[in-house]
Design a protein around this nucleic acid. Sequence first.
DNA 1: GGAGGTTACTTTTGCTGCGGAAGAATCTTG
DNA 2: CAAGATTCTTCCGCAGCAAAAGTAACCTCC
Lengths: 382, 382
Amino acid sequence: MTDWLPLSPAERSVAIEVLVHGPLSRTELARRLNLSQGSLTRLTKPLIESGLLVEAPWAGASAEARQGRPSQPLDVVAESWSFLGFKITDEMVYGVVTSLRSDIVARLDRPLTSHDPKYVADLLAAMTAELAGRHPAVAGIGIGVGGFVREYAVVGESPYLSWRDVPLAGLVRERTGLPVVVENDVAALVEAETWFGAGRGLDRFVVLTIGAGIGYGLVLGGRRVPCAEEDRGFGRHWIIDPLGPLTPQGERGSAVSLLTIPSIRYQVRAATGRDASYEEILAGAAAGEPMAARVIGEAGRALGTLLAQIANFVMPQKILLAGEGVGLMEVAGDTVRDAVRAHRHPLAAPIGLETKVSDFHDWARGAAVLAIQVLVLGGAGG
Amino acid sequence: MTDWLPLSPAERSVAIEVLVHGPLSRTELARRLNLSQGSLTRLTKPLIESGLLVEAPWAGASAEARQGRPSQPLDVVAESWSFLGFKITDEMVYGVVTSLRSDIVARLDRPLTSHDPKYVADLLAAMTAELAGRHPAVAGIGIGVGGFVREYAVVGESPYLSWRDVPLAGLVRERTGLPVVVENDVAALVEAETWFGAGRGLDRFVVLTIGAGIGYGLVLGGRRVPCAEEDRGFGRHWIIDPLGPLTPQGERGSAVSLLTIPSIRYQVRAATGRDASYEEILAGAAAGEPMAARVIGEAGRALGTLLAQIANFVMPQKILLAGEGVGLMEVAGDTVRDAVRAHRHPLAAPIGLETKVSDFHDWARGAAVLAIQVLVLGGAGG
DNA sequence: GGAGGTTACTTTTGCTGCGGAAGAATCTTG
DNA sequence: CAAGATTCTTCCGCAGCAAAAGTAACCTCC
């Protein structure tokens, strides 16, 4: 890739603003960034010359026919560069190709039959080759893994993969020749939502994921708060109901034992003897099956309590609920809302809750976004 | 007061740094603020000429006898200006005089026999006259009230005083001729601790007060997060134990009903029939009286749970526990710590917990700090 | 007690990057 | 086609910074 860098801080903020908030005219940018119009002419010139920005080819919707010289929207050339994002789980690798704007343009999944770092790196390289063949100008690779990651490069500890201090970025870089960014999967998803998703432009923003585990990400002042406990098992000790169910994965009555898919399935299996999928349990609860309804009801109350606690203590402008388990909201939404109400001041501002059905490709997209942040714009933040 | 303002942003940051972090040499300031030494000469010159800073008269402790030209520490002339801080409760007004560094140099309390705004303003003016007579160069007045305050001036709603839209700042300014800053009492305390106390220089910081009520303040990125629920009763709906005690003030098992002094006294009175003071109950619990020990033990567990939840969700670098009720920590400290442990990941970083015994004069000092922030340095932040 | 070293501060110089004002470009309206 | 509106560009001046060179105040060692 042509190295656009280094960008000056002001140039960087212009690039990010356009990248994140779509086509914007110079005047609009000046207003948003508190700069003069003259500065914007100066700042955008090198960005246009380097090819990162273009003057948008008349954004169809000339919309309001206003007087005066029409504004000239600037836009990133989203399709001129591609980014690869991978999410590694214990038995699958999910891959996506995204544009510079993080729109997914292709998907590719492969089973993971070994956790040997070299094997994983080989697999990632093979998937990269396959994806890069179909998509031009791949600028970089982002990889998300559950576990603790250091300096965008080394997997310090990942219980799911049984890894310790694996220099994954280096291994993949050797095999592909492309820049590689590795990060914790939850952190990557949070960054993606902060830049391009529900958290766009917000100051205080929380991401809560429910699925195989519980994920929690905090964004303050537009920046993600790094936390050491990012590896799985964080929610194991969020005790919501001391008398709650006891499951293999979490402490009694913890968020993990009440809310994660494995724990919910475990509870139903323990009570009924039948092994049901998460979707079946949700359907059963909706249909009024007593055991499923009880477990799902408890999960809904737990989720509401959790959301209320987060809202009470963090006071975020928005909470994004994501992950494979968000189907819970459809079935038990009222229960969740009741629990939230019970734990909130009646005059408190309503929680800005957004639910996003997400599959593993969203996690992979998150990793791609991290690659965009680090590689194109030289570091996070914005 | 001579109007030092306006300060340029850079000058302001220098002034704040010296004010908050004590005498500092120009070189040290340059290092802390990421500026060159030359810039510091330039920036400090007008500050010294205006009288806000002085070259410290050889700070006694020449400490390490190092080589080279000795550094010339700069300091604020803390005593050349005084600030008044008042805390209004429903039956008392507590007043303090502080230096520019917010050290309390005098106290004065008066009973409040009427809640009529004009009467309160007259009382404040009388107290101001008495205090200003003994202390020169009063630069401004800060007033802390429980309730919602708008724009540092108008008490929007205060249930304790039964006020609605009382322009307190204007009333007091008319009578004293001094600049007046009004703010919510908890907010003022939080600002004071952020600038001069436990939260100095921290990025994420929480203040939790227990006493007549529960107070909660959040500091992110060095700035206090304004929240609409700042008026009393915020913790009434933090349900900690759904099966907990039911008291007149809070919801069943809420932080208020488990932790505030009136609720604790109510519980003991309801169980034993005797009316005991908070201190007597604490002493009784320490001595092993069963009922007192039970109530205090429950309060300790509740506090630990609360602290753990805050730590889990906000991940602050430090939590300051303040208020009239912190004696709880001395008696039930182990219980609190056990509860924290139970609700935290075993590998999670320990909570930076600091306990501060505080009386009503600390609340008044907080109000004075707000006056310092707004009047001297032109707005909050730092 | 002077030479040389070390550190703190000051002065000078030049540059970056911003705002503001004036002008050019390009549209709508009458 | 002229007038008005709005956006963008050009140009100028200036605030504020870093870098470098100079000065001051102290040390240690000989």
